[in-house]
């Protein structure tokens, strides 16, 4: 049985304890699973963290990944967002060379992408952009000719969408 490889966004609710991240990352490296991106932070409850993990695999591998994650004692819940409505965001900080002749163009692109300039230096602007992965990649591509000094990106964070109507 061959299934096609697909990107899955997994949202893990875990106990906020030392070593939990290491258990999860170790599971992926030890079993040869793939991590595309990973974001970790506390939730509204201090003793619970949410890990948003993007992984690649066919149906069998994804099923095994979810089961193995569920088996970890500190993992409370594994939610696969892939086949349900969800909102997802990535963020990037892009430090781009701001030559006088490019500044207007940079600001125009920042405007079009609903990004923001969050730091202005003598030679560089730092641009903050939030959106999906495609949008961030596009902006980076467009700014590249002007000279990007460095980029910092988060992984994807995501939450399932709520129902639009109240159920009766």
């Amino acid at each position: 049985m061959a299934y096609k490889t697909e990107k899955h966004i997994l949202s893990l609710i875990v106990e906020n304890q030392p070593g939990v991240l290491s258990r999860i990352v170790g599971l992926f490296s030890g079993r040869g699973f793939n991590i595309e991106s990973l974001c970790v932070a506390e939730t509204a409850e201090a003793d619970i963290s949410r890990i948003t993990l993007v992984t690649l695999g066919d149906m069998d591998i994804i099923e095994q990944i979810k089961k193995q994650l569920n088996k970890l004692i500190n993992v409370i819940k594994v939610i696969d967002l892939t086949h349900r409505p969800f909102v997802a965001r990535d963020m990037a900080l892009i430090k781009v060379r701001a030559r006088p002749e490019n500044r207007a163009e940079i600001l125009r692109m920042v405007d079009i992408f609903r990004a923001r300039v969050v730091d202005v230096g003598a030679l560089f602007y730092t641009v903050e952009v939030i959106g999906d992965l495609e949008k961030i990649r596009s902006l980076i591509n467009l700014l590249t000719p002007m000279g990007i000094k460095e980029v910092a990106r988060t992984g994807t964070i995501a939450l399932p969408r709520e129902l639009k109507k109240r159920s009766k």
Binding site: G19, S22, I73
Partner: peptide
């Protein structure tokens, strides 16, 4: 605890 993480069901410090 780090060394035995992948070969224990669970471990504690």
């Amino acid at each position: 605890v780090g060394i035995t993480r992948p070969c224990t069901k669970h471990n504690y410090l």
